[in-house]
Nucleic acid binder design. Structure first.
Lengths: 185, 185
DNA sequence: ACCTGAACACCGTTCAAGT
DNA sequence: ACCTGAACACCGTTCAAGT
């Protein structure tokens, strides 16, 4: 449960920061409380990072990398675009019902650092979605619009899951609706 | 530019709080800076509100009421559901490109007070959307799902407008796509 | 009733001193 | 190199005292 020697690494602080985000959002990433939790004094924090912002940065990059990796991995389960689309929609609607770091971050993107991390993840996903829709027969701009639309739905569902979760209970029917709506060329 | 007598009302503080939200988000609603801006000392704040939370509450309710009123008003321009839907979609996509209080709040809804205000606005809108889709021929649960979907798109576009604004430039094409996607019974 | 001014708590940041 | 402990700045909250 505890190390006897209090020699921490930047990674220790980053992981603690991500845990804090899950629990209380970005503003819960506070140096003094994190230091208490890690069993050191807040002064020692500045041996690892220049300031709180640098910690937030590093923690977000850690999350971002893991997140992009997972997304890519889920796509590699199949080469068929229709199957990939369904897999992503299912993943999206089920993720929308869980409380994740992503959910937290989406809702705190007035922070420039959060926005930057989200944008990088979003860009990767939009490009992949665009490829899928192109393969499904939607030409250039139409494919791009459809990808934007699909991703907007995903983001919107993430948000609505917090506001009106009672509307997202019939997940299967919702996925079916999404497929019907997005599937037509 | 200034009143000579510094006798403030709760409304003065609420309006200042909303301005602060537009500028810097919810965390910019800070008693001491607001007091400075209003030309009083922070101590006097507590003659009007019990604490910062009560000010946030009051400011959000002020915004909420004005917002619901505007939404209802825009619906009353026509009785035809198809026209109403198009009007809402147009309103939504153009609102998505502006920086509004709503945009700010959506992205800060890890705050319980913000969530509550957003939920009240969302409920009103979802019910109205459901009515429209019912009138357009979508029976009970299908109408509800379609309303959820339409609203998810709206929320998602609000978010994407911040992340990837370059994808929302062709507004007309996007509205057309939305109508096509959402219009089919 | 509303405002001032001083006080205290909490967190971010700095820094001299320890190991 | 990393940690401690004390310092200072800033904001939330309280309160006695003014008008």
């Amino acid at each position: 449960m505890a190390r006897s020697v209090k020699q921490l690494s930047p990674e220790d602080w980053e992981r603690a920061a991500l845990e804090a985000i899950v629990d209380g959002g970005l503003h819960a990433v506070a140096v003094e409380p994190l230091a208490r939790r890690l069993g050191v004094t807040k002064g020692s924090f500045y041996s690892h990072f220049r300031d709180r912002g640098e910690l937030v940065d590093a923690a977000l990059r850690r999350w971002e990398q893991a997140h992009i990796d997972a997304f890519i991995a889920s796509l590699q389960q199949s080469d068929d675009p229709a199957t990939q689309l369904e897999a992503l929609l299912t993943l999206a609607t089920s993720a929308a019902r869980k409380g994740t770091i992503q959910g937290r971050l989406l809702l705190e993107s007035d922070d420039a650092r959060v926005r930057a991390a989200l944008k990088r993840v979003t860009d990767v996903r939009l490009l992949r979605l665009e490829t899928i829709f192109t393969q499904l027969g939607h030409s250039g701009p139409a494919g791009a619009r459809r990808a934007t639309l699909a991703y907007a739905i995903y983001i919107g569902l993430l948000q609505l899951a917090r506001e009106v979760p009672e509307r997202l209970t019939d997940e299967a029917a919702l996925v079916a609706e999404l497929l019907r709506v997005l599937g037509r060329p």
